[in-house]
């Protein structure tokens, strides 16, 4: 019996930093970028927007490839985190559609501008979930540090992102990817 092979994309919605001149930039950058999504975003709306974007980029072929197997598994507006499932053969199309989206999809099309950033591609939802929890924890620590930091005690922080890139690049450490191949 052959399983249907899938990919789970863990996606963060990132908002651009505030205009430092216009408002009082009291909030740390990190918190602004990962602020909660306040729009009325539901899984259904997101799926429809994604399908429209895929159709505009890849035409009927792309829309057909992602027609049946695209679904939003997890959507947290408070942390602006989404987990999307699609078939393994076509996840790159979905990913590039996400790259091309530039605002939060809503019913009336008045969402704020944002960036959809894929932070993890994995073969099981469990790994995606673990990664989401790990990142949320790390972000919490960083936010605490940022808010307690005074300019004098500014220590050079470790860059937290480069490992994430590699993470998203290779999913080979996922055990399900091994048994997905046999």
């Amino acid at each position: 019996m052959v399983r249907v092979k899938e990919r789970y994309l863990l996606v963060n919605i990132i908002y651009p930093p505030e205009d430092s001149r216009a408002g009082n930039s009291s909030k740390p950058n990190l918190i602004v970028q990962h602020q909660p999504t306040t729009e009325n975003l539901t899984p259904g709306i997101l799926v429809r927007a994604l399908k429209a974007q895929v159709a505009s980029l890849f035409g009927d072929y792309g829309a057909g490839c992602l027609e049946s197997d695209l679904s939003v598994k997890y959507l947290s507006l408070a942390t602006s985190t989404v987990i999307i499932r699609c078939s393994r053969d076509h996840y790159q199309m979905l990913w590039s559609a996400l790259t091309f989206m530039d605002r939060v999809p809503t019913k009336d099309g008045t969402g704020r501008p944002c960036i959809f950033r894929v932070v993890r591609v994995s073969g099981t939802i469990r790994k995606a979930e673990e990664e989401a929890i790990r990142q949320a924890k790390q972000r919490l620590i960083e936010a605490k540090e940022a808010s307690s930091q005074t300019p004098s005690s500014l220590a050079p922080r470790e860059p937290s992102h480069p490992d994430v890139i590699l993470d998203a690049m290779d999913g080979s450490d996922d055990e399900s990817m091994h048994d997905a191949d046999d």
């Binding site: 651009p16 930093p17 790159q92 199309m93 990913w95 590039s96 996400l98 790259t99 530039d102 501008p113 944002c114 960036i115 950033r117 894929v118 932070v119 994430v164 890139i165 998203a168 690049m169």
Partner: peptide, 23 residues
């Protein structure tokens, strides 16, 4: 030209992978 057209490195690499430049 503005902050909204910057993308994360992994996203960019995937985009170019779709267009034929290997990972």
């Amino acid at each position: 030209r503005n902050a909204l057209t910057v993308r994360a490195p992994a996203d960019v690499v995937n985009l170019l992978d779709v267009w034929g430049l290997g990972r």
